[in-house]
Design a protein around this nucleic acid. Structure first.
Lengths: 220, 220
DNA sequence: AAGTCAATAAATATCGATATTTTTCTAGCG
DNA sequence: CGCTAGAAAAATATCGATATTTATTGACTT
């Protein structure tokens, strides 16, 4: 479902609030992979009714963050190195596709939004807000693909990837890569409308992160 | 979510019943694309409570058959030629990928299940049961990809395609293609483990159908 | 007339209470 | 002792009623 992009804050429905909270808790690992998600328990935790919780969980099913088994409730989607490998592979294929379509029909607005997203990302240092900006930058790359479903898949997979990043980051979070430079490179290639180069840079960015994360995921 | 594969019949939960019925109604066009789906109305139609209906609709969101707008209910996913084109394109990419992975690690069981699925499909003539067998055959091709998410995507897209097939079939359903022969060809190539040939045959099968359907979809 | 605002109607969202189903526990049996 | 049947506990699923929100209508201004 992915509501993240709505005008933030505001008074939203209880379901939406529950959806956002639960989504966040699963992505950050506050609700561990595979964990049974009991309605009553979550209801108290989020201080809301059972209906919103239940509906939020149903919705999270779309994002592959929650599994539902008829008549026996919900659980946080399990995590495994195989699953992570699958996500990485799919992301590479789908983002490559979306990226190329985006560049193929590039427009000034697309380019400007991309530059803007990159700029905003550079400004932000606080972990939480950087995460959001980082996603926005990556989605801005794909935003011109004229393929809403494809973008939705990419967005879903992006989130699933973040989840693994969080699951892995229990160990020391040291990486000797220069992420900032990688982003600059991606942006530069995109602005110059070089699909091959952008794709190479982007996939390399993902694969390097993927390899690193895989090495940290021994405990799965 | 896609529960279709569960052991059929049986006493299921009300939610599951509603899910199946609504899914069917959307796929067949009984609930037209874009239509507002009012809880009360469906509740009476399915003779069940509001909660199961609501939950079923939330679940159908995963399958991209229903859209949900916070605080103003649900509607059947809209249909358009653009959307259909998108589905076709994604199917070709994803099924190609799944198929190749399937063949790359082919096993006797996979092959046997495939042959079986094909045989069953040939037996069946009744429209409804043929549809099911047809899907099972196509999914059997991909069943060995070792990539559950990929298979899920393919399954979803397959269903969305069926929906367009039904939307299009208002016109006379005449096609001068020999579908049976196309299936034989796909099966033969797969059994001989020729990934390139199978992929070519499969994608051609899809693209031919796609072109035909597109021509019928003028009224969208 | 076009536009606005309030009142009404309709629909959605949510709650609290039960009915059902699954899981856990335990005592009796082989 | 391990196993199974059945009771008790826990959790899920569902209902019916109500609170909120959105959509509609129509009178009133300019």
């Amino acid at each position: 479902m992915n509501i993240m992009d709505e005008t933030s804050g505001k008074e939203a429905s209880a379901t939406r609030g529950a959806y956002m909270s639960l989504r966040d808790m699963i992505l950050t690992g506050a609700l561990p992979a595979g964990e049974k998600l009991k309605i009553e328990q979550l209801r108290k935790l989020l201080d809301t009714g059972a209906s919103p919780v239940r509906e939020a969980l149903s919705l999270l099913t779309s994002d592959m963050l929650v599994e539902r088994i008829d008549q026996r409730g919900f659980r946080a989607a399990p995590a495994s190195t195989e699953n992570f490998a699958e996500i990485l592979k799919l992301r590479c294929v789908l983002e490559d596709m979306a990226l190329r379509q985006s560049i193929a029909s590039a427009t000034p607005e697309w380019e400007e939004n991309l530059v803007l997203a990159h700029h905003r990302m550079k400004q932000l240092t606080g972990a939480a807000s950087f995460e959001d900006a980082h996603k926005l930058f990556h989605m801005a790359l794909l935003a011109n693909s004229s393929s809403p479903m494809l973008e939705r898949f990419c967005s879903q997979l992006y989130d699933l990837n973040i989840r693994y990043r969080n699951l892995a980051s229990s160990g020391r979070n040291y990486q000797k890569r220069d992420i900032t430079a990688e982003h600059e490179e991606i942006l530069a290639c995109a602005v110059r409308r070089d699909a091959d180069a952008t794709s190479t840079a982007l996939l390399s960015h993902y694969r390097l992160t993927g390899a690193y994360l895989t090495s940290q995921l021994v405990n799965l």
